[in-house]
Amino acid sequence: MTQDEAILLLEYVVAACPAQRIGEFTPDVWGELFAPYSLDEARTAVLTVAARQPFVAPADVITEIKARREERIELAHVVYDGNPLETGAQSAASRRALIAAAADGLLPPRTPAAALGTADRLALPPGEPGPYTNRVAAARAAVGQGIPTTREGVVNPRAIPCRICQALPGTSCEVRGRRMRDVHPARLDDAKRRAAGLPPVDPDEARAAEDRIRAATAALAAQAVTTEES
């Protein structure tokens, strides 16, 4: 909040509480106290405080602002899966940016992924065409971070979607609704192929190869049983 916005906020306070005294240096003090917050959230907090008491103290307004910010963070269920290429400091900065975005109301309330079905987890909000334009990408872009992308010669499995659990780029693989510490082997293989400049695996060919392996295994098992019976 700027000093001019602090003056506007005080005018709002006087309108809500006509009996409240405003001194010569009150705008200066309020400008310093409310510098970390936006005018809109401070004005909303003033209305809430003024509705329950005759005078509006800065401490009461700030307490109300913090309570609403914590509430938005809790409802957003912020989850940052991380990027293997980030340093610890970069990962911490990205998580702080997401939490700040949630507190500012940039990340709307959502249900935790573990409580959703696969189709719900994959669905994007209306108007968002793909994973690289979702709300998390927008929030991380504000601090110079982006959804992990592939780079030539670098194996980063989280930069590509998983063909096993359908996890989107930048998110962890899941098994029965729980996030995995590592990714599915098939996703890692796909990332290695992309880093080496090779085309992605054809799903039909992959399934055919798996069928051949299962058939060969079954044949060996049957042969072993026949040999034991002999």
Rank of each mutant, 00 (worst) to 15 (best):
Glu152Asn: 12
Glu152Phe: 13
Glu152Asp: 15
Gly153Trp: 06
Gly153Thr: 06
Gly153Val: 08
Gly153Asp: 13
Val155Arg: 01
Val155Ile: 14
Val155Gly: 09
Asn156Tyr: 04
Asn156Ile: 04
Asn156Leu: 06
Asn156Phe: 01
Pro157Ser: 07
Pro157Leu: 02
Arg158Cys: 07
Arg158Phe: 05
Ala159Glu: 02
Ala159Cys: 10
Ala159Phe: 04
Ile160Asp: 00
Ile160Asn: 01
Pro161Gly: 12
Pro161Ser: 13
Cys162Glu: 00
Cys162Lys: 00
Arg163Phe: 08
Arg163Leu: 13
Arg163Val: 08
Arg163Gly: 13
Arg163Cys: 12
Ile164Glu: 07
Ile164Ala: 12
Ile164Thr: 14
Ile164Cys: 10
Ile164Pro: 04
Cys165Val: 00
Cys165Thr: 00
Cys165Lys: 03
Cys165Met: 03
Cys165Pro: 05
Cys165Ile: 00
Gln166Arg: 14
Gln166Glu: 10
Gln166Met: 12
Gln166Tyr: 09
Ala167Asn: 03
Leu168Gly: 06
Gly170Ile: 05
Gly170Asp: 05
Ser172Phe: 01
Ser172Tyr: 02
Ser172Glu: 01
Ser172Arg: 12
Cys173Tyr: 02
Cys173Gly: 05
Glu174Arg: 14
Val175Pro: 08
Arg176Asp: 15
Arg176Lys: 15
Arg176Val: 09
Arg176Asn: 15
Arg176Ala: 15
Arg176Glu: 15
Gly177Lys: 02
Gly177Asp: 03
Arg178Asn: 14
Arg178Ile: 10
Arg178Leu: 14
Arg179Lys: 11
Met180Val: 07
Met180Gln: 09
Met180Asn: 06
Met180Trp: 00
Met180Tyr: 00
Arg181Ala: 14
Asp182Asn: 11
Asp182Phe: 04
Val183Pro: 02
Val183Glu: 02
Val183Lys: 00
Val183Ile: 07
Val183Gln: 03
His184Gly: 05
His184Thr: 04
His184Glu: 01
His184Cys: 04
His184Pro: 03
Pro185Glu: 04
Pro185Ala: 10
Pro185Ile: 03
Pro185Phe: 04
Pro185Gly: 07
Pro185Tyr: 03
Ala186Val: 13
Ala186Gly: 08
Ala186Pro: 02
Leu188Phe: 07
Leu188Val: 11
Leu188Met: 08
Asp189Phe: 09
Asp190Lys: 03
Asp190Trp: 03
Asp190Gln: 14
Asp190Met: 11
Asp190Arg: 07
Lys192Glu: 11
Lys192Asp: 05
Lys192Asn: 09
Arg193Asp: 01
Arg194Ser: 11
Arg194Thr: 12
Ala195Tyr: 02
Ala196Trp: 01
Ala196Arg: 06
Gly197Asp: 07
Gly197Glu: 05
Leu198Met: 10
Pro199Lys: 08
Pro199Phe: 09
Pro200Lys: 11
Pro200Tyr: 09
Val201Trp: 03
Val201Leu: 13
Pro203Thr: 10
Pro203Tyr: 06
Pro203Phe: 08
Pro203Ala: 12
Asp204Ile: 15
Asp204Arg: 15
Glu205Asn: 12
Glu205Val: 15
Glu205Ala: 15
Glu205Gly: 13
Ala206Tyr: 08
Ala206Gln: 13
Ala206Met: 09
Arg207Tyr: 13
Ala208Asn: 10
Ala208His: 11
Ala209Lys: 14
Ala209Glu: 10
